[in-house]
Amino acid sequence: MISSPAPESPSLSRVVFVMDDLHRPNGIVSAVDLLASHMRQRGLRVDLLCFGPCDEEFKESHHVITAMPGRRLSTEMAGYSRSKPALKPLRRAITPVWWPLAKARLRRIADTWEPGTLVVGAGLDSVRLLTQAGVRPAVLVSQVHADVLALTQQQRSLLHSAAESSCTITALTPEGAEELERWGLPSVFLANPAPEAREQADVEHSRTVVYIGRLARAKQVDHLIEAFAHVAPRDWKLRIYGAGPMEGELRAMVEGADADIELCGTVSDVAPVLNGAAIHALPSQAEGLAMSILEANMAGVPTIAYNATPGVRLAAGPSARLVALDDRRAFEEALSELMRDDAARARAGRQAREHGRAFSASAVVDQWMSLWGQLAPRAELAPAPR
């Protein structure tokens, strides 16, 4: 993280987060939600410029600007029921009319930004659209929210495009920032924040293992279900929170398991979940910076995870039980040991909470203020030509 945060500059009055969508469950969205709330508490105006779907809760708690009305009809976007191949001729017919109107709207929005506004490109696709519309903020910081080495070719292309109009790019780990520098891209390490826990979990006496995240194949929740079913004592239970494409397959596994396992769906507030937990488990193949680990740390809940990426190691800290990627036997053993040792869980929980303090929203906002203080003098604080 950036060291020696500079004092907040009175010249910074507005922050704009440029988002692909505001739809949970999504670690990026959770991080932006937290940052935006804490920045507003410091007297900054914060806008969320959203290019995709938006949950109603964000419209109620933030100043959300719908960037491109009609994008669902005019572009092929995953997850939209109307985005079907059969609609491609309709999209082709609409786009020549829609895109000029959308560009004009984006430019009108950008014209309201004060000189020196910090624009955070939380979604690389949204940064691309902003640039194509001719909007080039003086202080634009784009973000990589995934493990840099795991980026797809399409993501790398978006990243290089965003770098052309960005002052710098933030990576979630020091290793990620160093890799971007090797690619010739300006970068800085700046982690995502985690919410402060309202209370600390009683991990010594709890008998609940929790998973919080998407039910996608790369998360390998099936590894956790199988491990728990093999080694869990009878008084323990596993609760899985989230949704995704693997839900049906995982539900079949749960129904066939001889253990107390339940798929609980999505949850908007993870605090009650973590307050009742003894162990947080994450058998994911890759993570940029695992938000669920950061949240567990704040609640004093120890984590068992695969040692998959630098982001897992950074989030986990010294208290976590990390085992070799895809070593299912080692994952089972770590889970069994921690379930059966109440004192070890209590120690690990205290260590997790101590490690989590470095990722508090207040600390991370300080780092954003410091970064803006470094970048603003280098940028022209007059509106960029559009």
Rank of each mutant, 00 (worst) to 15 (best):
R107F: 06
R107P: 07
R108N: 13
R108G: 10
R108C: 09
R108M: 11
R108V: 09
I109H: 14
I109P: 05
A110Q: 09
D111Y: 09
T112E: 13
T112R: 14
W113H: 04
W113G: 10
E114T: 11
G116A: 09
G116P: 05
T117C: 03
T117W: 04
L118I: 11
V119M: 12
V119E: 02
V119K: 05
V119S: 11
V120S: 04
G121S: 06
G121R: 12
A122R: 07
G123W: 08
G123D: 07
G123E: 08
D125M: 15
D125C: 04
R128F: 07
R128P: 03
L129S: 14
L129G: 10
L129R: 12
L130T: 04
L130F: 12
T131E: 15
T131Q: 15
T131M: 07
A133P: 06
A133F: 03
G134N: 03
R136N: 13
A138R: 14
V139P: 01
V139C: 01
L140R: 07
V141R: 05
S142G: 09
Q143N: 05
Q143L: 02
Q143R: 14
V144C: 00
H145W: 03
H145Q: 11
A146T: 02
D147P: 05
D147A: 01
L149V: 08
A150D: 08
A150P: 00
A150F: 04
A150K: 05
A150W: 01
L151M: 04
T152R: 07
T152K: 07
Q154R: 11
Q155M: 10
R156W: 09
R156C: 11
R156N: 10
L158I: 09
L158G: 03
L159I: 06
H160T: 07
A163P: 10
E164Q: 15
E164Y: 01
E164V: 10
S165V: 14
C167V: 07
C167K: 07
T173G: 01
T173S: 13
P174M: 00
P174Q: 06
P174E: 06
P174T: 00
P174I: 00
E175P: 06
A177D: 04
E178A: 06
E178T: 07
L180H: 14
E181M: 13
R182Y: 03
R182S: 14
R182I: 03
W183K: 12
G184P: 12
L185Q: 08
L185T: 10
L185Y: 08
L185N: 10
P186H: 08
P186M: 13
P186G: 14
S187C: 10
V188T: 12
V188N: 04
F189Q: 12
L190R: 04
L190F: 11
L190N: 09
